[in-house]
Simulated assay, not measured.
Amino acid sequence: MKKNYTKIVFDLLMAITFVLLMNPRVLNGLPFHEIAGLVIGAAILIHIGLNYRWVVTTTKKIFDSNLPKKTRFSFFLNILLLISMATVIISGIFISRVVFPGLAIQEGHAIRGIHSLSADMTLALVGLHIAVHWQWIMNICRKAFQSKEGKLRRGAIASVVLALAVLAGGIQWFSSSASINAGDFNKKQMLPKGDGQFANNVHQGPPDGDLGEVKFHGRDGHGGKSNPFLVVLNYFAIWAAIIIPTYYVEQRILRNKRKSRLVHPQNVG
């Protein structure tokens, strides 16, 4: 059970980090965007490791007719999600201006388009991934916050509230200090070298913005607001719009199956 709690907390942190990445202007702009993007890549490997048994077992049974349809759907959904996330990370490396400026492709408008499209696709797939596992998430949370007698566990609730408060305070502190740090970073990066080239090849891509407030070709990042709290609320609302109808469609399908078994009990088994 403790492992399930660890998964929930870890996945929540991944979700918050991911939605903050959807807007490249959040916090101190590109430095956070690119570094956190690499952190998400490492987090995905950890996520797979935490679910290693499920991955191995399902892979072995993927063509087994007895495998539940939901499990098979979740398996292929995870493959699509892994591909889309890998596309986001790889394309991000090829348009990098901070972490891998030497690998950046000049005039990489097509790469930027792929990066943006794959990010939006990943956002939708993550929402669907959460929706498929929503019942499991609710069961774990119910066991975590409710005793066997049905009473709320105040200690567990207080610890979550405290953790969220610390996280919110950390984001607020980072956000308030990021503008100063980003300004210093930009000045250092923009200092000209003796040969007239900009330091670290910052402008290998088209000059459509600075490092702290980068404006991507075609649109102003993935979102309009750079306040981290508004960004999190915005994209969590988008996920809710995916999770809620998907969950109720799944529940309707399950109810229809139960009714069918009651009407035709000879088909059970």
Rank of each mutant, 00 (worst) to 15 (best):
L103N: 01
T57C: 10
R142Y: 12
Q251H: 12
I95F: 01
R53E: 14
R219F: 06
N201Y: 04
A119F: 08
F32C: 00
N200P: 03
D195F: 12
Q197F: 07
I243Q: 09
T6Q: 07
A36V: 05
K188W: 11
V88N: 05
L211H: 07
H264Q: 13
I44A: 01
H264R: 14
H109R: 13
L30R: 02
V214P: 02
D184G: 15
R25L: 07
S118P: 00
T58E: 04
M22L: 13
P207R: 12
L233V: 11
I180N: 00
P192C: 09
D195G: 06
A168E: 00
L128H: 03
V202I: 12
L38Q: 09
K148H: 15
R112I: 12
L103R: 03
L123V: 10
S84L: 05
K143C: 13
P31E: 11
A182P: 08
P192N: 05
R112S: 09
A163H: 00
H129I: 04
N66M: 08
V39K: 04
A131C: 11
V98L: 09
R97V: 07
G170P: 07
H133T: 00
L164V: 09
V88G: 03
L254A: 15
I48F: 05
D120R: 12
G183R: 06
I105Y: 00
V166Y: 07
Y247I: 09
L103E: 11
M190L: 10
F63H: 06
I62K: 06
Y52K: 11
S96F: 07
Y235V: 08
Y235D: 09
K193C: 11
